[in-house]
Amino acid sequence: MENNWPLWEIFIRSKNGLSHKHVGSLHASDEEMAMQNARDVYTRRSEGVSIWLVESKHITASNPDNGDSMFDPANDKVYRHPTFYDLPEELKHI
């Protein structure tokens, strides 16, 4: 187990102008190998125009067990949405 290569998270920009999205991960000994393998694994069919690599240990994730307490507070704040405000039909371009 100790000889396991580090794990890398792979982010791909699918098209010019879009942001990078997480697509998956792979093991590699260093960033150069990770980059080559990411290209071969994740962009074989022109899925991307740019790749970002981040070693998995550098990613801090929210705890799924805390999902409720983390995201619930946004649910009862309807006033953050445009539809909360009543405006007459005849009002245009707003």
Binding site: P82, F84, Y85, L87, I94
Partner: peptide
């Protein structure tokens, strides 16, 4: 968009 609507309201 919400900002402008809250103002108009």
């Amino acid at each position: 968009s919400f900002h402008q609507r809250q103002g108009f309201e």
